[in-house]
Amino acid sequence: MSADLAPVGSSLLPAGGRTLDRERARLLASVLAPGATSASLIWLPGEPSTKARPRFSEGRTYKTAEDEQAEARTAWQLRRAFRKPWVGNIALGAVFFRSDRRRVDVDNMLKHICDAGNKIAWEDDAQITALLGFAELDAQHPRTVVVVCRHVSSLDRTPAPAAGRYGPRTVR
Rank of each mutant, 00 (worst) to 15 (best):
M1Q: 01
S2M: 14
S2P: 11
S11W: 00
L12W: 01
L12R: 01
L12C: 03
L13I: 07
L13N: 10
P14R: 12
G16H: 01
R18I: 07
L20N: 13
D21L: 11
E23P: 00
R26D: 00
L27F: 03
L27A: 11
L28F: 07
L28M: 13
A29T: 01
V31L: 14
V31F: 10
L32F: 05
A33S: 14
G35P: 11
G35Y: 07
G35A: 12
L41Y: 08
I42T: 06
W43D: 11
W43K: 07
L44V: 15
P45C: 09
P45N: 12
P45D: 15
G46S: 05
S49N: 06
T50N: 07
T50I: 11
K51E: 13
K51F: 13
R55L: 13
F56S: 11
S57F: 07
E58K: 03
Y62D: 06
K63L: 15
A65S: 04
E66P: 02
E71G: 11
Q77G: 02
L78D: 01
A81R: 15
K84C: 02
G88E: 05
A91W: 10
L92Y: 03
A94H: 01
A94W: 00
V95S: 08
V95Y: 02
F96R: 02
F97N: 05
S99V: 00
R102A: 12
V106Y: 06
D107H: 13
M109T: 05
L110P: 00
L110R: 08
H112E: 00
I113R: 07
C114F: 13
C114G: 08
A116K: 06
G117R: 09
G117F: 09
K119P: 02
I120S: 08
I120F: 06
A121C: 10
A121Y: 03
D124R: 15
D125L: 13
Q127W: 07
I128W: 14
T129Y: 08
L131V: 15
F134N: 00
A135G: 14
E136A: 11
A139V: 06
Q140L: 13
V145M: 14
V146M: 06
V146Q: 01
H151Y: 04
H151D: 09
S153Y: 03
S154Q: 13
D156R: 12
D156S: 08
T158W: 11
T158P: 02
P161G: 04
P161S: 10
A163E: 10
A163R: 05
G164Q: 06
G164Y: 01
R165G: 05
Y166E: 13
G167E: 05
P168L: 13
T170L: 15
